[in-house]
Amino acid sequence: MSDLRLVVFDVDGTLVDSQADILAAMQAAFDGGGLEMPSRDAVLGIVGLSLPEAMSQLVPGIKTAERRILVDGYKAAYMTLRADNGVAVSSPLYPHVRNVLDGLHAVPEVLLGVATGKSRRGLDKLLDGHDLRSLFVTQQVADNHPSKPHPGMLRSALSETGIEPHRAVMIGDTSYDMEMARAAGMLAIGVTWGYHDRARLREAHVLLDDIRMLPGLLQQIWEQTA
């Protein structure tokens, strides 16, 4: 049996804090659509979903054409903000993330991946902006899969790497990440520094308050599943 393990990360709210640009882009989208901007909590609550699904949740009953206007407006505003500010400002890495990722990547038995509601283009810009691309052997995006919490992203990550679900973990900050992990048969690690509070992370198998504790936590988990 292979000794390989797979660690899959969500992006927004887990690795990077992009809430300022998310909120600004959402405001621009709703202004452009002639609609009232939802509350900050409502907007951050849908981070991680694909944009069409996110807009449907923010505006229940919205028509397809109106939803498309919001989605396109959001994409355009987000791209403009990122171009104006640069990735490091628009989506800064949370403290200690880079060191932890580099440390995990250095372990031969550990494969890293991402599963995100971002588009391929959006993820490419972020990975290149932070020089992270080489760390992740599998990269799952919203373009190719149903929205979280559908497990399609994680099933593809497992298939691409040849890792069994019980030898993989999903790390994210939202209930969608936790539900997705459970549906894929993977262990769900919820992080508490992101956009969903502890109450919404009830589907997590484990909660993590400090990313610097992740390597030790993973070692404990793997010892139990060896």
Rank of each mutant, 00 (worst) to 15 (best):
M1L: 13
V11Y: 00
G13P: 04
G13D: 03
L15R: 02
L15Q: 02
D17L: 01
Q19P: 01
A20P: 01
D21A: 06
D21Y: 04
A24V: 05
A25E: 05
A25C: 11
A29H: 03
F30T: 12
G33D: 10
D41T: 13
L44H: 04
L44E: 02
G45W: 02
G48L: 01
G48Q: 02
L49T: 00
E53C: 09
A54K: 06
M55Y: 11
S56W: 09
S56L: 13
E66I: 00
L70K: 01
V71H: 08
Y74S: 06
A76G: 00
Y78K: 10
T80D: 14
T80W: 13
L81P: 02
A83N: 14
D84N: 13
N85K: 15
G86M: 10
G86N: 12
S90H: 10
L93G: 05
Y94W: 11
L101A: 08
L104G: 07
V107P: 01
P108V: 05
P108C: 09
V110Q: 10
L111P: 00
L112T: 07
G113N: 09
V114H: 03
R120Y: 09
D124T: 14
D124V: 07
K125M: 14
L127V: 09
D128W: 08
H130V: 01
S134Q: 13
S134A: 13
F136S: 00
T138P: 07
Q139S: 10
Q139L: 12
Q140P: 04
D143V: 06
N144P: 00
N144Y: 14
H145E: 06
P146G: 05
S147I: 04
P149E: 09
H150D: 15
P151N: 07
L154F: 11
S156C: 13
T161D: 08
A168F: 04
M170C: 07
S175D: 14
Y176M: 10
D177C: 10
M178L: 14
M178H: 04
A181L: 10
A184Y: 05
G185N: 11
G185F: 09
M186V: 02
A188I: 03
A188C: 10
G190V: 03
V191P: 00
W193V: 02
Y195T: 03
Y195M: 06
R198E: 15
L201P: 01
L207S: 05
D209M: 07
D209E: 15
I211E: 03
R212I: 05
M213I: 09
Q220T: 13
